[in-house]
C-alpha cells in the first residue's frame, strides 16, 4: 500500500467497507460473537459520519432495527424483575431459560449503549424501548465503589461501563438508575499523579479511560468538580499524547483510535484547538486503506471497523471536510444527536 497517495478521503471505499460489515463477516471474527452489536454500531455510525446513512437502504435499515429489538431483554414475565434488562450483544444466548438460570440471558451495558446509538442514527423513535426497564437494568449494575459492571453476573467493573451507563441514562433522559455523586467520586479517585485518568483508582492513566471519565463528567454536568489544577493537568497530559497522531499512554506507539479518544477528551475540555491538526490528520491518513477502504491502528496493518470509525470521527473533530460533525460526549453525529433532542422534547410533553 502506498501511503504517499493517502492524503485524501477514500470516501466511496469506506462506505463499501462498512456495508460489507453490516452484511456478513468471516469466521475469523468468531471471537466477536457476543459483541456483534458493537460491530453494527461502528458500521452504522461510520456511515453516518461519512454523511452516507442513506447508503443503507430502507429495507436494510428496518432489518437492523428489527434485529436490535430482538436483542432487548424485557422484564421477567412472572416476577416483573428488571435487573437483567438491556441489550444483548448477539443472539448466542437469546433463548428461553428456566427461572433457575434466567440470569444468563441479560443485557450488557456496552451493547445497550451502542444499540441505542444505532437506533438514533437510523432515525428510530425508541418507542419500542422499555425505558423504565433499561434504567432499572443500569441501576442494578452500579457497584458500591461507584463504577458499573457490564452485566449482572460474571463481569468485571470499570470506567468503560461507567461511561456506557452515563450514555444510556443521558439518551433515555432518566438518571434514576445512576448515582451521579458516587460515579463522580469514582472518576476523581481514578485521576493519576500525572493527571490522566485510569480504568480504576491507582492504575496507569490511559487515553481511552480518560475519555470515558471526562465524557461521564460532561454528561452528568459534573466537570466543575474538577479543580483548576486537575483541569490544567488533564490538558497537559492530553496534549502530550500527540506525537504526530496520538498515543494512548506516555511512551507507547501512536494509534489511530486515540485521535478520537484523546481528541474528544480535549474537545470536552474546550482545548482541542491547542493541538496540531495537520500532523494528526496526516497520521490518520497514513493508516487508510485506499483500495478496499477502512483504517487501521498503524500504517500498513489490518483495518477493522473500530479503527475505521474512530479514525473518521477523530478527523471529524478537527473539521475534516466531507464528514458530519460529531457530538463528542456520546460519540454519535450531531445529526443523530439532534434527533435525540427531538425525542427528549416529545417525552417531556
Amino acid at each position: 500500500m502506498n501511503n504517499e497517495g493517502n492524503k485524501d478521503m477514500a470516501h466511496r471505499q469506506h462506505v463499501k467497507y462498512f456495508m460489507r460489515f453490516l452484511n456478513i463477516l468471516p469466521s475469523s471474527l468468531s471471537s466477536h460473537d457476543t459483541t456483534r452489536v458493537t460491530i453494527a454500531y461502528f458500521s452504522v455510525a461510520g456511515l453516518d459520519v461519512l454523511g452516507s446513512i442513506s447508503a443503507i437502504s430502507l429495507d436494510l435499515r428496518s432489518r437492523i432495527i428489527e434485529w436490535l429489538y430482538r436483542l432487548q431483554v424485557h422484564p421477567d414475565k412472572e416476577t416483573g424483575d428488571m435487573s437483567l434488562c438491556g441489550f444483548q450483544g448477539s443472539s448466542t444466548i437469546n433463548i428461553r431459560l428456566d427461572p433457575d438460570n434466567n440470569q444468563f440471558r441479560c443485557g450488557h451495558l456496552a451493547m445497550t449503549y451502542t444499540g441505542l446509538c444505532i437506533l438514533l442514527a437510523l432515525g428510530d423513535d425508541l418507542s419500542r424501548i422499555n425505558r423504565t426497564a433499561l434504567i432499572q437494568g443500569v441501576k442494578a449494575l452500579q457497584t458500591d465503589e461507584g463504577n458499573f459492571s457490564a452485566t449482572l453476573s460474571g463481569c468485571e467493573s470499570d470506567m468503560r461501563f461507567v461511561y456506557c451507563a452515563a450514555c444510556i441514562s443521558y439518551i433515555l433522559n432518566d438518571w434514576s438508575g445512576f448515582d451521579i455523586e458516587k460515579a463522580t467520586d469514582y472518576v476523581i479517585k481514578s485521576i493519576g499523579y500525572d493527571y490522566g485518568i485510569a480504568q480504576c483508582p491507582e492504575l496507569e492513566s490511559h487515553g481511552g479511560t480518560t475519555f470515558c471519565a471526562l465524557a461521564t463528567l460532561a454528561l452528568t454536568d459534573q466537570l466543575d468538580k474538577l479543580s483548576e489544577a486537575q483541569i490544567d493537568g488533564l490538558k497537559r497530559w492530553l496534549v502530550y499524547r500527540q506525537i504526530d497522531g496520538f498515543q494512548g499512554r506516555p511512551n507507547k506507539p501512536v494509534d489511530t483510535c486515540y485521535s478520537f479518544w484523546v481528541g474528544a477528551s480535549l474537545k470536552i475540555l474546550n482545548a482541542l484547538q491547542l493541538t496540531n491538526y495537520g500532523s494528526n490528520r496526516r497520521y490518520v491518513y497514513e493508516t487508510q486503506d485506499m483500495v478496499v477502504g477502512g483504517f487501521s491502528k498503524w500504517p500498513d496493518t489490518c483495518t477493522d471497523p473500530m479503527h475505521t470509525y474512530l479514525g473518521l470521527s477523530g478527523l471529524s473533530l478537527i473539521g475534516e471536510s466531507g464528514l458530519l460533525e460529531i457530538e463528542p460526549r456520546l460519540n454519535i453525529t450531531k445529526r443523530a444527536y439532534e434527533h435525540l433532542k427531538c425525542l427528549h422534547e416529545q417525552w417531556v410533553s
Binding site: 469466521s27 460473537d33 456483534r36 458500521s43 432489518r63 443472539s91 433463548i95
Partner: peptide
C-alpha cells in the same frame, strides 16, 4: 442441539465454522 435463533433477517452475521 439448540440452534441459534437470530431472527428472520439478521445483520452482521458471522459465518461461523461448523465446529463453532
Amino acid at each position: 442441539p439448540v440452534p441459534e435463533d437470530d431472527g428472520p433477517n439478521p445483520v452482521v452475521v458471522i459465518a461461523h465454522s461448523e465446529k463453532f
